[in-house]
Design a protein around this nucleic acid. Structure first.
Lengths: 205, 205
DNA sequence: ACCTGAACACCGTTCAAGT
DNA sequence: ACCTGAACACCGTTCAAGT
């Protein structure tokens, strides 16, 4: 009688797609496989989602939510602004490293067409991405008020910072970075430190 | 009798795949379609490539070559170092904007598994990416010697710069950026300017 | 309201056979 | 050396039919 006590089919389909994606990449996510894992027929998902992309969109939304939660939780654990920035960015790359396939779903090639299918602005996918951006911009604006982050449009700083971290993550995941040095994770961590360093206000400026 | 006078089937298959990719995205590239465009059967490509991925790898290699040529040509048109940096980065985003699908092939999700299939290091895909990186690092090192680019490991600077530009491009192409303001191209151009600004040496440092 | 099974159109890939 | 046609296993998706 309590709604949501046992996960309904819709929720279980999303979970199954999430797991299959994480285990075997995009190629491993088939409606047949998702149905089988949940214990329904291969056409059952069509009762809950318009098509395969709609199911994957729900997975991406959940990934955005999980990443946002993780960043906000990390933010609560630090007190001063430069450290909170570093901690949040590290939480970001940790999520991307642990959930590689979900991360690629959020920012990869596939998502562009999906946002258009959602109606460009206003869709949950766009809202979720915007919320992450605003979290980042808000932290930078706070730091500027405290005088520890350098001047400039906080939206520009946030976009540039996010772009750099995303770019680093992309190169790390694609192996373009890995070849240079063993331990891509440590390498990215160090470079994120440099990014934060570059955001700090300079004495007398 | 002159070898390469008329393009052979292999070359025409690559060209057809490049065109289909550009016109309709990854979904439009099918071995059947490629064969049809060239005027051979759908199984003919297997006489020239091990499988579909091998054909796409050849397309990616050509894209890397085209991007490299474009950057080097742009570099020759500018004289002083700060301007050459800006010009080369703009050539980069121009290529990415004009050949969106090919650009995604070079740095998207697909390429990771491919590099592994190539044998991680030493493969043409990895060599091509490394060559672009070294072009960027070389320009920065030259600028440091001239005293116009700030201190730091040129490899780090190159990686951070490239990551930022690639990240900006990703967000622009994915529409995450586009929503904020009309004219994503102008926006990216302005932000690339900020990136170059951040690389300049500061007086007295 | 939710699920099923059969069917359809489309893939990549293999292989025996042709020139 | 290069190409072909038939065939196979696998997709997403539709639809009439069941409870």
């Amino acid at each position: 009688m309590i709604p949501g006590r046992t996960p309904d089919t819709r929720e279980r389909l999303i979970r199954a797609a999430w797991d299959l994606l994480g285990e075997g990449g995009p190629g491993a996510v088939t409606l047949r496989g998702v149905g089988a894992r949940v214990g329904v027929s291969r056409t059952a998902p069509y009762r809950h989602f318009a098509d395969k992309d709609a199911l994957l969109r729900a997975v991406a939304e959940q990934a955005f939510r999980a990443l946002g939660d993780r960043m906000r939780t990390a933010a609560r654990e630090a007190d001063d602004t430069p450290s909170v920035l570093r901690v949040v960015l590290l939480a970001y790359i940790d999520f991307a490293s642990e959930h590689t396939e979900q991360y690629r779903l959020m920012f990869g090639e596939w998502v562009i067409a999906q946002k258009r299918a959602e109606g460009d602005a206003g869709g949950p996918l766009h809202t979720a991405a915007l919320s992450l951006f605003e979290l980042c911009a808000g932290m930078l604006a706070q730091g500027q008020r405290e005088g520890v982050i350098r001047q400039g449009d906080p939206a520009d700083l946030a976009l540039l910072t996010w772009s750099t971290v995303h770019g680093l993550m992309t190169f790390a995941l694609s192996g373009h970075l890995e070849a240079k040095e063993r331990g891509a994770r440590t390498e990215v961590e160090r470079l994120v430190g440099e990014v934060v360093e570059g955001l700090m206000a300079r004495r007398g400026n």
